[in-house]
């Protein structure tokens, strides 16, 4: 594997003193697309914003590293960070309606993105901005440069956001639910646009989404988040065919026809995700897990590799497609020892 462009190591984020993101690690190879899925409140947005250094009081990063190329973004001063943000790493946000400055023309906002990192002369910057606007599919880009955000539809605003994010050819693009605020027909257009532009420019992408259908079509790999941790990470194909963690398994099986929203797609799993600060000891999924055993409560579960996937579960689901409901072949032999079997209530 080539050196990753983005290497997030044990990222921890807290609101005040309450940990919310509890040690996220992943790597992003050049041009790779990683999906980040999980229920609402699992900490996806906080992860992305922390990578960008965009957290605001009382939210702060409490540990870990975010390596972009060779530098740890978390160790940079504001001035140093300003040279990186927008130039080498960019982000697209969930709500395009509020993410653009209502008092500046769209052109001025794109030109600003260019000029902050590339001191080109005005006419040139405007020409580049118009090109960008054309690239993201805004009709009449030259005229539209002088329009204000409120004169654009939601989908068009998100295209402008994409133009801003890609203005300086970043290596990494973080997309936080870029289509959630848009209507259904626009959603796929915008996703396809991101897809095309990122392939053309070789931009590595993290796509945060609720929509597993979108994730399936767009991502090379998918990481599943639960209560501030990754519970499973594997290639898209593997995950859909063969989710090993009970949580992702429930997600996937509830999404047979893909395109179902994670927030609403969990009829199979009763209960609510734990609130930050009230996360149970041991496995955080235990209260809702159909496969839970007493051992699950003992100590924090590690994320371990299992047939090419990373899974955070001591009783992962079998890789054999038909036997998802049976106790799986455990990576950890200890689980299958007689002693462990005894502790299982229904074994």
């Amino acid at each position: 594997m080539t050196a990753p462009v983005l290497d997030v190591r044990d990222l921890q984020v807290a609101i005040g003193t309450t940990p919310v993101v509890r040690g996220i690690s992943f790597q992003l190879a050049p041009g790779e697309r990683l999906g980040l899925v999980g229920e609402s409140g699992s900490g996806k947005s906080l992860t992305a914003l922390s990578i960008m250094g965009l957290n605001r009081d009382p939210i702060r990063v409490s540990g870990g590293q975010v390596m972009l190329g060779g530098t740890d973004l978390l160790g940079l001063s504001r001035a140093e960070l300003d040279r990186v943000r927008g130039a080498r790493i960019s982000m697209i946000y969930q709500d395009p309606a509020s993410s653009l400055n209502p008092l500046m023309t769209v052109g001025a906002q794109i030109v600003e993105a260019i000029n902050l990192h590339d001191k080109v002369e005005r006419g040139q910057a405007r020409a580049r901005a118009a090109d960008l606007l054309g690239d993201v599919g805004v009709p009449n880009p030259r005229q539209r440069l002088d329009a204000y955000p409120h004169e654009f539809s939601g989908g068009m605003r998100q295209r402008v956001m994409i133009a801003i994010a890609l203005a300086c050819q970043p290596e990494v693009l973080l997309c936080d639910e870029p289509t959630t605020a848009l209507d259904v027909t626009t959603q796929s257009l915008v996703i396809n646009l991101i897809d095309r532009l990122c392939s053309e420019r070789g931009v590595a992408t993290v796509l945060i989404t609720h929509d597993l259908g979108v994730a399936a079509g767009f991502c090379d790999n998918i990481a599943v988040m639960y209560a501030g941790q990754l519970v499973e990470q594997s290639s898209t194909g593997t995950l859909f065919a063969n989710a090993r963690h009970p949580y992702s398994h429930a997600l996937m099986s509830a999404t047979v026809d893909l395109g179902v929203d994670v927030t609403t797609a969990l009829p199979a799993i009763a209960g609510q995700p734990p609130l930050p600060g009230t996360i149970p000891r041991g496995c955080s999924f235990r209260p809702r897990c159909p496969r839970a055993v007493e051992a699950c409560a003992d100590e924090p579960i590690d994320l371990l590799s299992l047939d090419g996937s990373l899974v955070r579960c001591i009783r992962p689901i079998s890789s054999d497609p038909g036997s998802g409901t049976h106790p799986g072949t455990a990576r950890d032999a200890a689980v299958d020892t007689p002693a462990a079997q005894e502790r299982m209530p229904n074994a």
Binding site: L54, R85, G86, S90, M91, L116
Partner: peptide, 20 residues
């Protein structure tokens, strides 16, 4: 959100304050 966008573009604090 638009101030967050501006900071995300790499705008220094001064510029975020005065321009946005």
């Amino acid at each position: 959100d638009y101030v967050r966008t501006a900071a995300g573009k790499g705008a220094p604090e001064r510029r975020v304050m005065l321009r946005h």
